[in-house]
């Protein structure tokens, strides 16, 4: 290869070196560390699968991610459909309710839910003041709190892709369906939903993908039993200084992510990751 043919690639070099040094190399060393147990290369992995505690955390992580994804689909698809029907007239609703929370950090939103659902939070103050309950309800530090917080953070990732696909549907198709006698419900079922499927699929995959790596929300809103894999990794690194085992858990999480991403790319294409 002539040197001249490499010239167009030269602007990539600084960024590539940066990614190599601060991303690829640390990840590779982490993976190597996960296979570096004193008692055999797979010892950390065996420990992760043999211990009921860790297996439970893995199961809990996927179960929570799946549950949250399902709720996001059930709430997000009607919401996107409703917003698409507004056709820009109420675009501010979209911005305030979907995009602004989307840009507000997870920590702030989780804090807000602590203030709303906590023991002395807004909901309990209202319930006590109106006499609906005599003692504060336990709304956080349990699985319910984790679900509320996670669904809130992840819903925009569901609504935005579905919304953008739905606004892209040719409106003459609706008129065609109506003129052929379809009710609005039937139009929704036979025209809107099938055409929105790529958006729904990409939203659901994205939500699931982000959900399995969640850390902040389970840590703040969850109870003792609501430990996700990320929380387990943090404890292993910071408190137990068990880097090798933490690396093994992280590699499992990484592999799960890669598999989902490959699926995403195969089915939808990675360029769907923007709005």
């Amino acid at each position: 290869m002539r040197l001249g043919s490499l010239r167009p690639l030269l602007p990539l070099a600084p960024a590539l070196v940066f990614l190599g040094v601060f991303f690829v190399q640390p990840l590779a060393r982490m993976v190597a560390l996960s296979f570096g147990a004193a008692d055999g290369p797979f010892a950390h992995y065996v420990r992760a699968v043999e211990s009921p505690v860790y297996l439970k955390v893995l199961g809990m992580t996927f179960q929570t991610a799946l549950g949250v994804t399902l709720i996001c689909v059930l709430l997000g698809v009607p919401t996107a459909w409703f917003l698409a029907g507004l056709r820009g007239r109420l675009g501010t609703v979209l911005v305030v309710a979907v995009i602004l929370p989307f840009l507000t950090s997870i920590l702030i939103r989780t804090y807000a839910w602590m203030a709303i659902l906590g023991r002395n939070g807004v909901v309990n103050q209202v319930l006590l003041a109106t006499g609906l309950t005599s003692a504060p309800l336990p709304l956080i530090h349990n699985t319910f709190g984790v679900y509320v917080g996670m669904v809130h953070v992840l819903l925009p990732f569901m609504v935005l892709p579905v919304y953008s696909v739905m606004t892209g549907i040719d409106p003459t198709l609706f008129r065609a369906a109506q003129s052929l006698g379809a009710t609005p419900a039937r139009t929704l079922r036979t025209v809107v939903l099938p055409l929105s499927l790529p958006g729904i699929a990409s939203g659901a995959l994205l939500v699931f993908l982000i959900a399995i790596g969640f850390y902040i929300t389970p840590a703040l809103l969850g109870g003792v039993g609501d430990v996700m894999i990320s929380n387990l990794i943090e404890v292993q690194v910071i408190e137990l200084l068990n880097w090798g085992f933490a690396s093994a858990l992280a590699f499992v999480l990484l592999l799960a992510t890669v598999v989902i991403m490959l699926l995403f790319d195969r089915v939808l294409g990675l360029d769907r990751l923007t709005v």
Partner: peptide, 27 residues
């Protein structure tokens, strides 16, 4: 059917907007 879906959407939008409208007054 339409009304039910619109109802879900409105409740979801309120749910999404709620934290910002609680944090601001609290501050």
């Amino acid at each position: 059917m339409r009304a039910v879906l619109a109802g879900i959407a409105v409740v979801t939008l309120l749910f999404l907007a709620l934290p910002v409208f609680v944090v601001l007054p609290l501050s």
